[in-house]
Amino acid sequence: MTSLFRSTAQCLRSGLAVYRARPAGGRSRAASARFLCSAELQKDLGEMVKKDKVVVFIKGTPAQPMCGFSNAVVQILRMHGVDEYAAYNVLEDQDLRQGRHRDPAAPAGQLQVEIRAPAKLCTVDDEEGVKDFSNWPTIPQVYFDGEFVGGCDILLQMHQNGDLVEELKKLGIRSALLDA
């Protein structure tokens, strides 16, 4: 009996080791968990992007972007004087809080959400959820008035050709560049 218990425990342990050694296993598990609550998540994301006039999904936070593309979005918004916007961090909140750099091979975890002004915290699924929701393959993602605007390249081009000033005007936000 004891030996049976021991071998079972060994099986469990080795099974766990295999799971940890192969991120693909973690991926598929995360995918099935996502499948279960995907309808709910899509609804949540639908509400999240409508809650604030300007909503961005980035890697890191506006204060500490963890990727050059996310940083570009933050800097463009800052240039236009857009201070009040919701920024959702698609990286794991655990890793971010502890200042660890996220292993790209590790299964994507919970999505930590930080909204600046008004400060608010909520948690949804991982970045795959956002990608599916907008049918857009990359982060960052920008939303104006609940509408998907695009990624970093699109925001940068809108900034360069003046469209961004116009789009902000539609939101009732006066670009700081007009007063510069």
Binding site: F69, P104, N135, W136, P137, T138, F148, V149, G150, G151, C152, D153, I154, Q157, M158
Partner: peptide, 26 residues
């Protein structure tokens, strides 16, 4: 529109984008 154009490129490279880490387009 810019968004439609980028979506066309994304759709064209949908399979490749799964492998690609960072992607900029004009």
């Amino acid at each position: 529109s810019l968004l439609q154009r980028h979506r066309m490129v994304n759709t064209c490279l949908a399979e490749e984008l799964k492998e690609i880490h960072a992607f900029e387009q004009k």
